[in-house]
Amino acid sequence: MMNRRSEGAALVLMTLVSFTAVAACGSKDGGSSTGGNGNVQIFVVPEDTIANGLQPGTELENVQDGWTISYSRYLVAVGNFRARRSDTGDSIGDPSIHVLDLKAAPTSGYVVKELTNVAAVRWDKFGYDIANAKAGATPLAPTTQADADFMIQNGYSVYYEGAGVKAGKTITFKWGFAAGTSFDDCASPDGVPGFAVPAGGTVQVKPTLHGDHQYFDNITQGVEITKRLAQWLETCDKDANAELTIEELKKCDVVTALPQPPYDLTAVKDQDGDGKISVFDYVNTQMRTFGDYQGDGECPTRASQ
């Protein structure tokens, strides 16, 4: 009897121990059992419209009213890249802001940040800022320190110089905007949020900056359905000196420059606080929407800074 008892006891004890061990092992979340870490490479890419401008034409991606747009200088202050996992709440990121010269960008874009030793899972909440440049914002080669100082001095989030040409007529512009905005919940064009880090590998994360939103006929919400129009460049140049200044934009009434239809001015805010909606308000609002992800993926949660 005693033998059997101790036999049974030993067996039960052995089982208890093995079950404890077994219950505690295995990964708790939905990840693969092997775990592991990888790297994240964040690089900022300007859209084709910044490098090559916009062409007139009748295709959906062309400017419909005959204007050719080109940029000679394009500076942005971008940074505060951040990613978070919804399942555990872990977050990674880097708060620094960088000033980038998008016209001089290498073809593969600016490698802004490399994060190493990141858990090899999906980080589904990715976001970044196009921020008003402040002291501490650093340029990334080949952006010059002078460019960075210029942005910081004026507190701009984006500054560009370029020209619109139609039928021999040229209108030049040099505009800077303090339109700092945070972009969150970025998802690829297929709707997959964030990014997945491979174990022992590198994932490339590509915030993409568009260069044509000020020529849209609405403020984009979600999918971009728009005609590109630029006639307001001429309409707002009231003194007809072939140069369009910010002051002229502020005085340019949308009622005449951006007729509705075809324009839809929903979500344009009175950015300069003058009690009227001007083309400046329109362009400034558009300058808060041009941060995208992995090409044409959207970052729908935006907040002005």
């Binding site: 295995g26 990964s27 979340d29 939905g30 990840g31 693969s32 059992s33 092997t34 592991g36 990888g38 090899a120 899972v121 999906r122 997959v192 990014f195 997945a196 491979p198 174990a199 590998g201 994932v203």
Partner: peptide
């Protein structure tokens, strides 16, 4: 729904 190199996330 998998990304390049993603560690296949299993429902456990």
């Amino acid at each position: 729904q998998l990304e390049e190199g993603e560690q296949a996330p299993f429902a456990k």
